[in-house]
Amino acid sequence: MESCNAPPPSASKPGFLGFGLGLRSQHYNDILTGNPAVDWFEIISENFMVPGGQPLQILDQICERYPVVMHGVSMSIASTAPLDFEYLKAVRTLAHRVRPKWISDHLCWTGVHGINLHDLLPIPYTYEALDHIAARVHKVQEVLGRPLTLENVSSYVAFAQQDMTEWEFLSELTRRTGCYLLFDVNNVYVSARNHGFDPIEFLNGIPREPVVQFHLAGHEDHGDYVIDTHDHDICDDVFNLYRAAVERFGAVSTMIERDDHIPPLADVVAELDRARDIAADVLEHFPTKWTPVRRRKCDKTKSYSADPIPSDRNVL
């Protein structure tokens, strides 16, 4: 096993941003012309890793008004294919523009042999994988000049060869590399149902310190198994697990991912308010940790021209 490495220079844990949403093109107009009660937005980095045109213009307008964090889907940190430094530099270039509070991607691989399957594929929780991924996280953090934030994914298969649990793996990875964690509550729920572990055990197995963000999302329940589709409202079970997560991790920046059957902005904001209420309810009992959420005012004098809107190709 590798020795414990210090986090990269200038790393200070990002603060609590409040309650945010995934930025989706269907909502651009409402966001820029209205004043939605959203504290921050998360972008899918790849949707803005394009040469120019309107997507980047809109992104600039959003960044003027809201804190934005970057969430990638193709770093493929766990792949045994070589790290794609061109991709990492493109992420860094976008980060210069966005000034994100943090940059996240998934603890997964997306392809080998020069092919990208555009899916978040599972890894075996072995020391071999841990050594490999930890070394790559170090390299990524060097290129980005900041700690990487990694998210637990939903998985449908698990490997027979396993040296530790998923939560032990995540804990050890963050201890070795100083990376932060994006704790996806729905993904824990989905994987727990699929593989038959106790989500609370997962939750309690993750250290408090590195967790900088929560994801909430809906899924598709097939009874015997669950698929992480991001196309449904968040179910009560996931909200209950969120309550448990807030009890354990405290005030952590929370956002909702919705990638398909996207409802009007007001509906997602209402769903976000439910998360706010749960967090407020839990954190009332821990007043020292609670920072009241200030809803941002946005500058209504700026106008927005409604030209053709691109679709978000990168979703997950």
């Binding site: 899916d119 594929l121 449908y156 298969v157 698990a158 490997f159 027979a160 060869q161 396993q162 149902r193 699929n194 593989h195 038959g196 097939h222 009874g223 015997d224 198994y225 698929i227």
Partner: peptide, 19 residues
């Protein structure tokens, strides 16, 4: 398939098909 752990309720084969 021989290297996968059986899922909680579903068939391993069906779970692999999800991908």
């Amino acid at each position: 398939l021989s290297q996968l752990r059986p899922p909680a309720h579903a068939q391993t084969d069906a779970m692999l098909d999800i991908y």
